[in-house]
Design a protein around this nucleic acid. Structure first.
Length: 573
RNA sequence: CGGGGCGUAGCGCAGCCUGGUUAGCGCGCCUGGUUCGGGACCAGGAGGUCGGCGGUUCGAAUCCGCCCGCCCCGACCA
């Protein structure tokens, strides 16, 4: 490819819509452009990277016996209604109607369609296990797209689904994916950690996320450097250093707290520390209302509560709270709560004596209350988010917190979708059972952005060889004089299987160097006056800057060998 | 959805507060010339519904109202 004929519009200045490093660099270097909020046009460079990532994924998915298919993006509303996700997805799902007025959706994911496929074709235990996957565009109307391609509304995703007859089979399919994912991310050159994650509702299910530590990431990780414990904050456990705090309140009494709602406000108003305050969070499940209590210095971990309740959980709306408690959010509490509302508390609450709770009356709190004495608690569980200062549950060492980009997620679905959509198989005894499923995703553009975040330097991007848009660039500094020599070099590199682009533009050398650094090709071969006086060209490695000068005749061979050597770092296995 | 910021040439910005000639600057683009190993120089040139609609005014990029879009923080997010 000649650069002069290649669409790679590089920019000298940062695009103003871009904040995070990878977004700025990828736009500046001409990999993609934004079309609208959360939607991108991938230019040749960006598309090449995506295809490289896709190729690695395909090879590794095929290696575990998965079969590639392609599902539609345009889907019938009924299938989502059948599993309840027509409602569950809410505004996150792009919806439309066809000319006959039929409900349609742009698929945000494909469990439903894959399950339907399984229902039609996997009828016997003899048909199982199976793994199907696709690389497909997903649509989610994110409330707030951000970080460029890190969270977008239309994005390419590899999603696979496993179908098993037994739970042991699911474990096996899950393990296959775990191994495949490690190989994929290793081959893509990423540094990542595998953390346990929220598995949602399908009780006992396992779920792990593949996370690339980066300030640009939206997820928070809890890590233990001593023993290797790693988890998403949503589910992380910690050893608490909680201690109880003496209370200034002698007896239980109502106090007027006009317009004092949050823990900070209450603490300030009553002149006590947050450790004396008990927060009451009201949540809804599909079947009931629950009040979760957490000590004022901690935050509720919704996914922990969800697991404890075994049902989908969401925060109750202000109206629902007012309805049930007769008091607005901010003043509700466990004392004289409606009897049908179960009161469940985080461990930290047990430490509170003569503390403060909401009064279930506007502008009122109750002080001097003790859990278990002044109000009932049906059970004490770990329901709080781990916080700074907590220690590792396994080894007791201090925990570390980090932001990260979620590039992959694997988890055991169970039978939720197969039951809802009637995907049953017949066992050896002729009995029917729901197919046991797993679901596994990788965000292709996130892999791209994560690599940029990981390795970029002040000059620009530094691609891992395996996902670079081109392996090498040939800088022809004087096309008039050395054009023919460079052309030959280029041809010979092609013959040797090195994927190169030839910068033949008739512009000053500085621009070519800057662009090459910005775009981040792993190797750069320079043909210019300085070297050619001695009949030599320069080959430089972008990553560490090492370079060699070699005679022109040996240049192609030498580069090809170097590239080949480098490829082994990213080789499968 | 709450809070904040922004919208002026392909890109990045100034001008707006305090209304008044042909709306500027840098980059990029075009033509000619000189350069040629780290974002060259000189000369000439093209390119604008000042996000949209409405209002105030003799006069609006500038003031007022509504709307749209984009970004950031938060909320939200198998």
């Amino acid at each position: 490819m000649r650069f002069s004929r290649f669409l790679a519009p590089t920019l000298k200045e940062d695009p103003k819509e871009a904040e995070v490093l990878s977004h700025r660099l990828l736009v500046r270097a001409g990999f993609f452009r934004q079309h609208m909020s959360g939607v991108f046009v991938f230019l040749p460079l960006g598309w090449r990277v995506l295809q490289k990532v896709a190729r690695i994924i395909r090879e590794e998915m095929d290696r575990i016996g998965a079969q590639e298919v392609l599902m539609p993006s345009l889907t019938a509303g009924e299938v989502w209604k059948a599993t309840g996700r027509w409602e569950a997805f809410g505004a996150d799902m792009f919806r439309l109607k066809d000319r006959k007025g039929r409900d349609l959706a742009l698929a945000p994911t494909h469990e439903e369609l894959m399950t339907l496929l399984a229902r039609n074709h996997f009828r016997s235990y003899r048909d199982l296990p199976q793994i199907l996957y696709q690389i497909q565009t997903k649509f989610r109307d994110e409330p707030r797209p951000r970080g460029g391609v890190l969270r977008s509304r239309e994005f390419a995703m590899k999603d696979s689904y496993s179908f098993d007859a037994t739970w042991e089979g699911l474990d096996e399919s899950y393990a296959l994916h775990d191994r495949a994912y490690r190989r994929i991310f290793d081959r893509a050159g990423l540094k990542y950690v595998v953390v346990s994650a929220s598995s949602g509702l399908m009780g006992g299910s396992q779920s792990e996320e593949f996370m690339v530590p980066s300030e640009a990431g939206e997820d928070r990780l809890v890590l233990c450097d001593a023993c290797g414990y790693a988890a998403n904050v949503e589910v992380a456990e910690g050893k608490r250093e909680d201690h109880s705090v003496p209370s200034p309140f002698q007896k239980m009494e109502k106090v007027s707290t006009p317009d004092v709602r949050s823990v900070e406000e209450v603490a300030g108003f009553l002149n006590v520390t947050p450790e004396l305050i008990i927060k009451g969070l009201v949540v809804r499940t599909p079947t009931r209302m629950v009040m979760a209590l957490v000590r004022g210095d901690r935050d509720l971990a919704e996914s922990k509560l969800q697991r404890a309740l075994g049902e989908e959980v969401r925060m109750a709306t202000p109206e629902e709270v007012l309805d049930a408690f007769g008091a607005p959010i901010g003043f509700v509490g466990p004392v004289d709560a409606p009897p049908e509302v179960e009161i469940i508390a985080d461990l930290s609450v047990r430490q509170v004596e003569r503390g403060v709770v909401g009064g279930n009356e506007e502008d009122t709190h109750i002080v001097g209350v003790t859990p278990g004495v002044d109000f009932p608690v049906s059970r004490y569980l770990d329901l709080a988010l781990v916080k700074e200062g907590d220690r590792c549950v396994r080894c007791g060492e201090p925990l570390r917190f980090r932001s990260a980009i979620e590039v992959g997620h694997i988890f055991k679905l169970g039978t939720k979708y197969s039951e809802a959509l009637g995907a049953f198989f017949t066992d050896a005894e002729g009995k029917e059972h729901p197919i046991i499923m797993g679901s596994y995703g990788i965000g292709l553009a996130r892999v791209m952005a994560a690599a940029v975040e990981l390795y970029a330097d002040e000059k620009g991007i530094r691609w891992p060889l395996s996902i670079a848009p081109f392996e090498a660039v040939l800088l022809d500094l004087d096309p008039g004089k050395y054009g023919e020599i460079t052309r030959k070099l280029y041809t010979s590199l092609q013959e040797k299987g090195v994927e190169a682009i030839w910068d033949d533009r008739n512009i000053s050398a500085g621009v070519k160097f800057k662009d090459a650094d910005l775009i981040g090709y792993p190797f750069r071969l320079v043909v210019g006056e300085r070297g050619m006086r001695e009949g030599k060209v320069e080959i430089q490695h972008r990553f560490d800057g090492t370079s060699r000068k070699v005679p022109v005749e040996e240049a192609a061979i030498s580069l090809a060998e170097w590239v080949d050597h480098e490829r082994r770092h990213f080789a499968p296995g």
